[in-house]
Amino acid sequence: MFRLTKKKKHDLLAGYFFVSPWILGFLIFIIFPILASLFLSFTKYDILSSPKFIGLENWKRMFLEDRRFLNATKATLKYVIFAVPARLLFAFIVALILNLSEHKIIRLYRAIYYVPSLVGGSVAVAVMWRQIFGLDGLVNFIMEKILGMSRIIWLGDPKTAIWTLILLAMWQFGSPMLIFLAGLKQIPESLYEAASIDGATFWPQLFKITIPMLSPVIFFNLVMQTIGGFMVFTQAYIITGGAPLDTTLFYALYIYQKGFRDYDMGYASAMAWFLLVIIAIITFILFKTSGRWVYYEAERGR
């Protein structure tokens, strides 16, 4: 240990004093609720009366008895598996296009393409999506009146309902796109110049330069979007409410229903902790595999 001078001590104290609002907020509004929910997951708690300790009862019910828990897990996995890559791919393609030139009009497009994400998880977009895919919505109108096909009950058919939500996720590609774009700008122009002198056309350049150089950004986006994907709530809450046949009953929606509709807060807490475990495992796996495909310039010499 080293001794602090009086002045240093004073500075340290003053420092802690000034960050104390944040520290207090962190302890009271983040750490305390997290620990409380861990405790609650072993209790029966209906908000009305005080929590009663019931050991692993909630967890047993979750894994052994609750069919809807299984439905919710399946629906969420399906959503993450399809929506996350779709959104990333789409964002990447759009970023590539917007990176082609520095014209003023391109800058305008950048802003425009970001708009759907700004209004992202908002209720308004969800309500609009409901209308578009509704029985007499825009999509059915086009299919019936212009393409001459028979209409599809998008939100009521167990086969199609989740796809409307995945499509919505794809449409909200703005924030990963912006990050991709920033990454693309970082790739040194000299690499492309050298490649084109050697006769490499667009495709080899894409696979040999752009994607490897962008891989840290792709990795970052993948992790963030996967985590976000598991926590999807508003879209399903507004557009489908989990129906039909629980095919869009996302995990977070089911937690909400358990906690605030069935007043089963203990069970909801247990579910939340299980979600945390799943997300942690998947993120861990992503990090483990990242060594094989993510290329960091700084580590070149290793």
């Binding site: 509704g134 009950i153 009521g156 058919d157 409410g241 129906a243 039909p244």
Partner: peptide, 11 residues
Amino acid sequence: PSIAVDVSRTG
């Protein structure tokens, strides 16, 4: 109305 119609119209 069928179930699919009912579900797509909730709310």
